[in-house]
Design a protein around this nucleic acid. Structure first.
Lengths: 335, 335
DNA sequence: TTGTAAGCGTTATCAT
DNA sequence: ATGATAACGCTTACAA
């Protein structure tokens, strides 16, 4: 920068003004400076700028896992929004470990990040307390926090369950099994609640042995159906609370020669890419990932500078995608 | 830092020495300083450090795409290695656009990054030239560059083709179709070359109409089989150069009532997670992603500081995973 | 409109 | 072993 100033025959402050062009600079001097910049291939250093401005030009994204479609979606769309807003993205994988969470957050703070987006903070983590002391904008995505006054972006999971239930009920199913996520996670409970509501609205009930508590992984989809079958549960449809488990369920149904959707209708949730690639393509519930991520970044950018955080909870809507894995239940059981 | 020094009754330089503990400090002073640090909850600022040291503590990862299993693997394992080595990861998605590549690289440079890992630079990009002028360690992953003396980590794609071919040949297949990636990409050509070599070793040939040039996407798997079938190609096996296309192929085969593997054996490559979830589980070729990423980070760390880059090409080996989608071809055509 | 100079928070050199 | 100080490269009062 000094060199640029020298060559252009001006002072460094003028160079700075040209670069940031927030303060009026004479046209001619500007041209001289720009020429010098080109000539020297000068690139302003971002660390120096960040140090001075107390703003690193960086947004941190914290995920508990990377190889998992949901988080891949977050990474993808958050990166997009972050870059669109002129920042860069630092990515950290915590493996759900509070200690790693803390270490990562710590270094983000020390980098003067402009904001932090968390997806699924672990409950035991102290990071939120740590962060409340700083005034770094922060937003939680995809995770409902009871008592925190921290902005968050969540899906209406009750609605998701409702949509799933309504779809199956509308197809005349009454004996429906459900494979849930871990029930100590609020989102699984919400989905289940909505699902039950849809059934009971149609006069159907969901007995306990029609519910299998999975963990959102493929294997628990397998296990769920094994269990249903060995218990001789008579069901005409299954809803798995995510596609991964639905795909597991499908695998076991196939193995037992049970046709989907002819014998049993099956639906999932998330609309992961495999869900439309498998046969039959999966009926599913989709989440507005892109919108969630954009809002998350916006919350951060809007809150920048403002001392007081206006804690907000933005709730977004899921929607139904009907494909080939569900079909109306007929007397003749023909699709 | 000044505050810490004040409270501990020492100078800032001493505080610095305590923190970095590279230079001997009296035990007692050290304790005093550490106490002061705790008391003030002092966290050294990484931007200032990076500015001073010309080393941002950051490694950049450049990918052309995020929602794609291969790059998800890279992101996952690179993040892991980067963090293990005490750095942080900045992630940039270029969408294969040379201009975005350039912008991203530019800001990495301006952040004094300690290294850059590229997966699949676009050929037209000028970034490599730009980077050659700096002495930022850089390594290319998963992409063979002809004339560059830049370190790279690649898979032995010829070997991958060979393995695929040998497996099918060993199962007595002779009429085998192949769905390739874009043939303007070296890696697709290498795979094809290896594949052909395996076939011809067994006295089989691969006629041109048994080859379909895809683009590694699901849809091109669909299109390929449609083409084969409408051309009435008589094949007993298909190799798709990645799992995505194999899954597409499977879908169309299913739609036409063709059983895999009873009627046609099918194999893919990459070992993406869906490949073992679908029915039948896909026989595939797997890449040592974790090792590739670790090596990439190591190359960067080893090269740091050294002026002269020792251009290296590290070649890693693929391996075969036999699952349910391929079976030996028998006279009776029973599996 | 432009220049001067202080300061952002470190580390490294040089004395002591 | 420790302290004073310059420097890293930028922005921004303040002065001119």
């Amino acid at each position: 920068m000094k060199d640029v100033a020298q060559i252009a025959g001006v002072s460094v402050s003028t160079v700075s003004r040209v670069i940031n062009n927030n303060i009026p600079v004479d046209k001619e001097t500007r041209l001289k400076v720009e020429e010098a910049i080109r000539q020297l291939r000068y690139k302003p250093n971002l660390l120096a700028k960040g140090l001075r401005l107390r703003s690193g030009g960086i947004i941190g994204l914290v995920v508990p896992e990377i190889i998992h479609q949901t988080f891949v979606n977050f990474i993808h769309y958050v990166e997009e929004s972050v870059v669109d807003s002129g920042f860069e993205l630092i990515l950290g994988n915590t493996h759900g470990d509070p200690e790693k969470e803390e270490r990562f957050i710590d270094s983000l703070i020390r980098r003067n990040v402009d904001g932090i987006i968390f997806s699924r903070v672990s409950d035991q983590s102290r990071v939120l307390n740590i962060l409340e002391k700083t005034n770094i904008p922060i937003v939680i995505i995809d995770r409902f926090l009871e008592n925190e006054n921290i902005p968050s972006i969540v899906l209406d999971n009750y609605k998701a369950g409702l949509l799933a239930g309504q779809h199956l009920v509308q197809y005349h199913h009454r004996k429906i099994a459900c494979i849930t996520g871990p029930l100590n996670i609020a989102l699984s409970r919400e989905r289940l609640k909505g699902f039950k509501a849809a059934l009971s609205e149609a006069g159907a009930i969901l007995p306990d042995d029609f519910i299998y508590e999975g963990d959102f992984k493929f294997e628990s989809g397998l296990a769920a159906v094994e269990k249903f079958l060995s218990d001789e549960i008579e069901m005409t449809a299954i809803w798995a609370q995510n596609d991964m488990m639905a795909i597991g369920a499908l695998k076991v149904l196939n193995q037992h020669g049970i046709q989907v959707p002819e014998d049993i209708s099956l639906m999932g949730m998330d609309n992961i890419s495999s869900s439309e690639m498998i046969t039959p393509a999966l009926t599913t519930i989709t989440q507005p990932f892109q919108e969630m991520c954009q809002k998350a970044v916006n919350v951060i950018i809007n809150r920048k500078g403002k001392k007081e955080l206006a804690p907000s909870r933005i709730v977004l809507e899921p929607s139904l995608i009907i494909r080939d894995s569900t079909c109306p239940l007929l007397r003749e059981s023909v699709c």
